[in-house]
Amino acid sequence: MKRLLVLVALAVIGVTLLYGIGKMPPMDSRASPDKTHVVPRYLGHGEEEAGAKNIITGVILNYRGYDTMGEVSVIFSALCAVIAILDREKKGRSRSGVDASRVRTSLIVTTVVRFSLPVVMLFAVYTMLHGEPSPGGGFQGGAIVGASIILFTIVFGLAVSTKRIPPGARVPMESVNMLGFLSMGFIGLAFGVQFLTYILPGLGVAAAETVRKLMLDVIELGIGIGGGIIFISIVFSMIREDRYELQQDVP
């Protein structure tokens, strides 16, 4: 009975969605509202108005910067949710009494990770700061930072990672993505323009452009660092180094 109800509900939703998709403007149409209403301005004037050659970056940080501030708050909320339910990683040894950092790992793996980690990190910073002229930006760069540290943790163990980046250092950095947006927003307010406006009055044209570039870079770095550290903290609080997992590797 329950299954039948679920099946009927799914069928109704599916048919409704398919009907809607069928009635949507065709993908290749140039006259459909989604290509003629707001988009022409983004494409035509986005570069000089929003200050980014990459139009997507311009939309994300400038035209709809407030939404992006909301999105980084979503990521922060997710971190708070994970920590509120799972708590942060425990200090010291794991429950099994085995220190995972002393488990011998393959020399090849550790060497590869040791050599590649700095390069990956450098690439992450490049991605964060190069979101303006090319694809990339804070979110992508942050994901790379997070992934690299997670790789390090898998190879060298949670104890080593948490010693290098203790919670005390991570907590302030986790809020940095929201604080980047908020501080740039409040700078705008102090100059008497709207929240998250990057062209500040009272400066010359060239200086205002430079200031805008700097403000956008601060926000990108904030999104990247904050996002990366949040990934790391979420993974750390989910890791459980149990005896079961270690049994195969303990010499």
Partner: peptide, 23 residues
């Protein structure tokens, strides 16, 4: 003039600083 956005920005600022404050 900035009142409407402060309604969102102020509690968000307090939320962002709350874990740091708790340290």
């Amino acid at each position: 003039a900035d009142h409407p956005v402060l309604l969102v920005a102020v509690p968000l600022l307090f939320a962002a600083l709350c874990p740091i404050w708790a340290m």
